[in-house]
Write a protein that binds this DNA or RNA. Structure first.
Lengths: 204, 204
DNA sequence: GTCTATAATCAGATAGAC
DNA sequence: GTCTATCTGATTATAGAC
């Protein structure tokens, strides 16, 4: 650990290469169905090279998922500072839905759920970063907007985020797109309406 | 098939026995990590007996999941006729949450998501029975209650069911119970409030 | 019909050449 | 440091005894 190129900070190149290959295979095949041979082939290195960078299959998988989880979390909530405009509820829903609809994020969500029993610490990490984060942003927003008359900001934030996530699971993972299609626009409209109509009672 | 214990009526006994064993192992270990040896041991039969009732591992898994899906669906929506009382929204949420919180249902949901790529037809069946069913019950309800001013009943029904399902995923599968606990009562209250407050504007 | 024993394949992990 | 070749054990599926 004393070899001293100035830019060594970025971590080893081969390690990155292995993680890239591992990502392709693990995210599409799942943990148990992924063989180290396929990871080696996808990464373009030999198996022994993988074992020199990672202790075993579990170690590789854990390192990979931890990294992808942190990456995705930062990407989704990057500078997502909710200002105080009322239309920001809609903006949050739209951008949340759009960002989480990318294949890599959906694969991550699927594998986190799949392996939640075998790797509870990964599921817990996911909950603490992605889910908790989204919930607390909205909780803060509801607390700063008493005119929305949200009695329980935390539970309501869970409802808001949860309806978006389960929409993605149903449509994109469980083939709802083909079986019972529902446009994302309609979901966002219905969701925002549910909240915004509370400020101005209907003219009746 | 001529051994004649009086209780032989229940359809092939061995087939049922195999499915029971398969359920234990598949639902807890997932598809790829389940070996036919363990299924045989759990069912108390030999491997060859399994192969005489089912074509192969995929065939056994498919038959099992199809049956469990239909079973659970009928159990959850049994006589769940939504009458027209307004408090039925709360009753629906409570009973939905309670029935879906049982371990067998959660394991089924988890494995359906896990294997959605390898067994798309199982995911599609799940969507058509469980998800579509819940959504359409609520869609009908919203359509029969125009005083709730639901512009898009279908999308709104998806939001209602979705927030319940994702709550279970977060709390029960992704260790939210330990990391960021949130009581079911609070979720149901917040959810119902969101809908019922729309009928009677606030006194302001 | 059901079991024991076995075939053929493939997995994760390691040893040793360069 | 990286690769080729290999070991050990487990897996799916089948053949043949009773």
């Amino acid at each position: 650990m004393h070899s001293s190129s100035p830019l060594e900070v970025i971590g080893s190149d081969k390690r990155e290469q292995i993680l890239q290959g591992a990502m392709q295979v693990f995210l599409s095949q799942g943990y148990a169905s992924t063989s180290m041979d396929r990871v080696a082939a996808a990464a373009g290195v030999s198996k022994q090279t993988i074992y020199s960078y990672f202790q075993d299959k579990q170690g590789l998988f854990t390192a990979l998922i931890e990294r992808v989880t942190i990456d995705r979390m930062q990407h989704i909530f990057r500078a997502e500072e909710l200002s105080d405009e009322p239309e920001l509820l809609r903006y949050f829903a739209e951008s949340f839905l759009q960002k989480m609809a990318d294949p890599e994020f959906l694969s991550l969500l699927r594998i986190i759920i799949s392996e939640s029993a075998r790797f509870p610490e990964l599921a817990s990490l996911y909950t603490r970063t992605v889910i908790q984060r989204g919930r607390s942003i909205l909780t803060d927003y509801f607390q700063r907007h008493p005119e929305l008359r949200i009695a329980d900001p935390e539970a309501t934030a869970q409802i808001f985020c949860g309806s978006l996530i389960s929409f993605l699971i149903a449509q994109e993972i469980l083939y709802g797109k083909e079986v019972a299609p529902l446009a994302g626009d309609r979901l966002v409209n219905a969701l925002v309406t549910l909240f915004l109509d509370r400020t101005s009672p209907h003219p009746n």
